[in-house]
Design a binder for these strands. Structure first.
Lengths: 344, 344
DNA sequence: TTGTACGCGTTATCAA
DNA sequence: TTGATAACGCGTACAA
């Protein structure tokens, strides 16, 4: 602030008046000050402001820990942070001006570091945080993870595990469905291709015939998936799904045609909330995403950095948990006709 | 801090050493200081600490605004707050020590005010915030709302509306299912009884025969509901559901018995996320809870108070939105046999 | 082991 | 309309 004042040839209070609009200032001096601010990239310090004004400008969102209403990841992160004397502030960020958002976050002193959700392969927020020299931890991974702290779901091992579990039951024709984020704001989101690749690798390694489908989000994709399987992979005896909305439509169509899950077709879900499969009939076996664990690990890793840890990057992959129900999984039916043989 | 120091007969820095464990202090003096702290209820000011130590101890959780991963209410609140220069910090709170939590929140200067989620009829957080003289806004309502700012769902009008919509289609035997939170941490949660009451009133007023069921959470409740309806209210031609988990089981059982939705039975959901009904087959008509609007309104009301507004309390009730699909609703079937007449 | 005093970056009061 | 300066509440060299 003093630097701005010097540069504009005014006193520090005048700068304050301009920044806050507290008192009238001549247009000319206001302009000079604004220039100085821009040139220096000055941002008022939120902490000092809070101390001087006796107002933090922070709103607390009190939520009872008993009922899991919030995203479990967020909840775990908030809890882990508080356990270590930190607070978690929500920072919604529009991708189109990640730059400004991130620098302001750090320069104003609001936060010491950041946790990044929904990381894409090339994530601008990462660039900005690095420039700002602010510690951060990714939930997910960028393409280049050199020297970066992250925690992510171990899609590779989870996919291999899911396939292996099916293979152990005699399945030899397995289909995979993932979400297609192309053309959406989430394009560049890594998990779907990662799982596709892992699926292809694991299928090859275990001599399974793998069939892979990408479908956009939305409930319509379930029925579409059924059609595709019937037309293009009718010998499929098991479906691995990492698609939020496909399962309902899929099971509905199958049921109408007389395909019985799991007798005729096994279905498992990958990396979904634990509760996602429970509502279906039969309950879908779900390799549940370790949301709480990721939230906790990420937060703890970040706090370690904030407290000066110079340890090598935390790069943790957590596999999804094994299904708690197996109602949707059965041994591969021998001699089952192709799905296309069931009545339409 | 000075007061603590005086009372303990030491200097202010010694107090700091004790509070932070920065330097060794004789056990005796430490004890004297601790006593003074307790007696005075001293809590170190987080803002001053942040300024002096150059560390805010705040972690930012960066989430892209594009993908609605978080609770829509929370997201809307965070966004509305930032639009007005405030930040939203997540404050998970255990009901069993709401007192300590809330006072520490305010006394440490971390937050200027609070938003309360999952409000119960007698909510200790409210008592504490009042004592602390901190502005707050409820999402929901306590029993006594005298002078309290709140925004809530208008369960009364939404329930009446839902019933009226069914009545207009000729339904005269309607059943309601709500969640039973008795014996759970959420006991004392107001919405279920409110809706029951509104349902009873509206049924009476419109000459409808209303049947009402309470069931605990969990997927098992859907099948239980079906059994109950078949046994106790077989003439029901429409179900109003404000139960998170009941619909899947209900439709599954009905389908197995040959009951066709909506031909034989109409189903609507009350106060659920907009997407909740879309996954079923047919999609369940949903009176969607106005989560974003509540988040925004609550935040704006709180900020108004923080900025000194002396206006009378904001007490807003927002009805749920009309369903965007009606696939699960049809005119009441005339001459349909009782549900108990369908094959088991 | 304890105390003194300065600095953190603002806001706000009062004077000019 | 602008400037000087005292808070704001704490951390921490440095001194004792």
């Amino acid at each position: 602030m003093q630097q701005v004042a010097d540069r504009a040839g005014v006193s520090i209070s005048t700068v304050s008046f301009v920044v806050n609009g507290t008192k009238p200032v001549t247009p000319e001096t206001r302009e000079r000050i604004q220039e100085a601010i821009d040139e220096l990239g000055y941002r008022r310090n939120a902490v000092a402001r809070a101390l001087a004004s006796q107002r933090s400008r922070v709103i607390a969102l009190l939520f009872p820990l008993l009922e899991h209403q919030l995203n479990p990841f967020v909840e775990a992160a908030a809890t882990a942070a508080r356990a270590k004397g930190y607070n978690l502030v929500l920072w919604p960020i529009r991708n189109d001006n990640a730059a400004a958002e991130v620098t302001s976050l750090i320069k104003t002193g609001i936060a010491d570091g950041a946790l990044l959700m929904e990381v894409t392969l090339e994530d601008e927020r990462v660039t900005r945080l690095r420039e700002a020299a602010a510690p951060f931890v990714l939930i997910g991974r960028t393409r280049d993870t050199e020297g970066i702290d992250y925690v992510d779901i171990d899609f590779e091992s989870t996919t291999a595990r899911a396939l292996a579990d099916l293979v152990a039951l005699g399945h030899r024709e397995v289909s995979l469905v993932v979400e297609d984020n192309d053309g959406t704001p989430l394009s560049g989101y890594a998990p779907p291709p990662r799982v596709e690749q892992a699926f292809a690798d694991a299928a090859l390694a275990s001599g399974v015939h793998g069939f892979s489908v990408r479908l956009p989000r939305g409930p319509a994709s379930g029925e579409r998936l059924a059609e595709i399987l019937i037309a293009e992979a009718p010998r499929t005896t098991a479906v691995i799904s990492m698609h939020r909305d496909a399962n309902f439509g899929l099971t509905n169509v199958l049921r109408r045609r007389g395909v019985v899950v799991p007798r005729d077709l096994s279905i498992v879900m990958l990396s979904a909330p634990e509760s996602a499969g429970a509502v279906l009939d039969p309950a879908i076996a779900t390799y549940a995403q370790p949301a709480e664990e990721l939230g906790r690990l990420a937060t703890e890793a970040l706090i370690a950095r904030l407290e000066g840890s110079q340890a090598p990057p935390t790069q943790v992959l957590v596999p999804c948990a094994a299904p708690s129900t197996h109602a949707s999984v059965a041994p591969a039916p021998s001699g089952r006709p192709g799905l296309d043989a069931f009545p339409a």
